[in-house]
Simulated assay, not measured.
Amino acid sequence: MPARPRIALVPGEPAGIGPELCVRLAQRDWPVDLVAYADPGLLQDTATAFELPLELLDINAPSHAGALALAPFPLSKPVVMGRPDPDNARATINALLAAGQACIGGELQGMVTGPVHKANINAGGIAYTGTTELLADQAHTDVVMMLASPELRVALATTHLPLREVPEAITPALLERCIRITDRALRRQFGIGKPRIAVLGLNPHAGEDGLLGSEEKAVMIPVIERLRTQGFQLSDPLPADTAFLPRKLTHFDAVLAMYHDQGLPVLKFSGFERAVNITLGLPYPRVAVDHGTALELAGKGEADASSMAAAIELCAKIAARANEIP
């Protein structure tokens, strides 16, 4: 583990705002070395378009304000901002996989990723549901998606599922796995000695003692009670409509939501520009922006870099903390 961690910076969709975000944030000094996994011409053209200095260095060189180390991943076609090209999908995926492999191999200590255009990747002939799933498959591990802002951390038991499929997906095994991964990440990556996790019920009013659904009594409570005997600090299933009240959140370090739109609207409302997406369970920290490719803003100089800046800051903190853990 180097004294100064090295972190991959992957722009994502070449025709989106990711390249602009990377070039703008390359103007700052960071407590880590940033290694861009990207097309060098795209980065230089982006810097020129916005009249920003950018020096691309050898992959092993230390980065500094105005300069990025580079792992080159040339695109197949010239980029037209705002217009994703399926022919460039393979380079986008290869950059993510190469950065992931470098993290697994210990060459890098973390990864920050920009937004990826799912439809364009699939149009390029690559089956892709998301970067979270891609990196989990590469690392052969179970993961949990967590979105976090300075005020709130929300982990998801299920992610991109149709709502009608969620109840069957909430099994005892899935719930236990998500709790264990979340608890471990809060300890190791966030430095929380005894994590307190609020578990949201699946049904309105957390089932209201079986009147509005049986999943809480039949599936969730037995898992929660068993894990409590092993030292986990978990709430009973909480009604989602009141769990996010500020006075309740003071008692917890994270919230485990049962499905995507149960927990994320609250988090995004409370601090969208400062929110990031963290993949818990990987053998390295991966932090992503909490927004899409914003094709309508690409090339216009109007993109907000706050989320990617927050992602770099958090990834740097986690990587530094890993240095201190035996």
Rank of each mutant, 00 (worst) to 15 (best):
A123Y: 11
V79Q: 04
S235V: 14
A294Q: 06
G130V: 14
D236Q: 12
N323P: 04
D253R: 03
A309E: 15
P222W: 00
G281W: 03
V266T: 15
I17S: 00
A123T: 09
V223A: 04
S306L: 07
V199M: 06
G213A: 06
D85T: 11
A294G: 11
A303C: 05
E273I: 11
G210E: 08
R83A: 15
G191I: 00
E273V: 15
L42M: 06
D137P: 03
V32N: 07
I7Q: 01
E151S: 11
A123G: 08
L200P: 01
G100V: 04
L161C: 05
A91Q: 05
K248R: 15
D241T: 13
T92S: 13
I318F: 00
L25A: 10
V166R: 07
A243G: 14
N60S: 15
R180P: 10
A49W: 01
E225K: 09
N120C: 15
V223D: 01
T229Q: 14
H205E: 10
E302K: 14
V10L: 04
N323H: 09
L147E: 12
L56Q: 06
P162D: 00
Y128K: 08
L152P: 06
L57C: 13
L108I: 08
L200G: 04
I93Y: 05
A127R: 14
V23L: 01
V166H: 05
F272C: 12
L256A: 07
P162W: 01
D45H: 13
A71R: 14
S214P: 03
K300D: 08
Q101W: 06
R286W: 07
R177L: 09
S76K: 08
D58C: 08
P283W: 03
P222E: 01
A310R: 11
D39A: 04
V144I: 12
G114N: 10
A26W: 01
A298Q: 00
P150C: 04
V219I: 15
P2I: 09
I17T: 00
E324G: 03
A99T: 13
D253M: 07
Q138A: 13
K300M: 14
A169V: 02
I192S: 03
A169H: 04
G263A: 09
R180N: 07
T132S: 09
K317P: 03
M111L: 15
L256E: 02
F272N: 05
A316M: 10
T242Q: 05
